[in-house]
Simulated assay, not measured.
Amino acid sequence: MSTNDALKMLYKECLKLDPNEATQLILGAETEEEQEFYSMVSDLVLQQRQRKVIEENRF
């Protein structure tokens, strides 16, 4: 599997991330760098969901 394919799979999996799961990942991170990564992924997923809600006028 190429790096490109692996990253695409990672992106799709991240989109499924539940906010509670994200919190657990952040709290369970072994390093500050890992914690920051999970936080950024969580923020991105939430932003995308918010954008979709706004576009659909569901707010």
Rank of each mutant, 00 (worst) to 15 (best):
M1I: 03
M1E: 08
M1L: 09
M1P: 05
M1H: 11
S2I: 07
S2A: 04
S2K: 04
S2C: 07
S2E: 04
T3E: 11
N4C: 01
N4V: 12
N4L: 07
N4K: 15
D5Q: 10
D5H: 04
A6E: 07
A6P: 00
A6S: 08
K8G: 00
M9V: 11
M9W: 04
M9A: 15
L10V: 07
L10R: 09
L10E: 06
L10P: 01
L10T: 07
Y11G: 00
Y11P: 00
Y11M: 05
Y11R: 13
Y11E: 07
E13K: 15
E13R: 15
C14G: 01
C14R: 14
C14L: 03
C14D: 12
L15S: 02
L15E: 11
L15C: 03
L15G: 01
L15N: 13
L15A: 02
L15I: 03
K16S: 06
K16D: 06
K16Y: 08
L17Y: 08
L17V: 05
L17P: 01
L17A: 08
L17R: 07
D18Q: 10
P19K: 12
P19E: 07
P19G: 04
P19R: 11
N20A: 11
N20M: 12
E21S: 10
E21H: 11
E21D: 15
A22S: 12
A22R: 06
A22W: 08
A22K: 06
T23Y: 13
T23R: 15
Q24L: 09
L25N: 05
I26M: 12
I26H: 01
I26G: 01
I26K: 02
G28I: 05
A29E: 01
A29V: 02
E30V: 10
E30T: 06
T31G: 01
E32N: 09
E32S: 08
E33F: 05
E33H: 06
E34R: 11
E34S: 08
E34I: 03
Q35T: 01
Q35N: 05
E36T: 14
E36R: 13
E36L: 11
E36D: 12
F37D: 02
F37N: 03
Y38A: 10
S39G: 10
M40Q: 15
V41H: 05
S42P: 02
S42Q: 13
D43R: 15
D43P: 00
L44C: 10
V45C: 01
V45T: 06
L46K: 14
Q47S: 13
Q48E: 11
Q48T: 04
R49D: 08
R49P: 00
Q50C: 03
Q50I: 14
Q50V: 12
Q50W: 09
R51H: 12
R51M: 07
K52R: 15
K52P: 00
K52Q: 11
V53T: 13
V53D: 03
I54K: 13
I54D: 02
I54C: 01
E55N: 14
E55M: 09
E55S: 09
E55H: 09
E56T: 08
N57F: 05
N57S: 06
N57T: 09
N57Q: 08
R58W: 08
R58Y: 04
R58I: 04
R58Q: 13
F59W: 09
F59D: 00
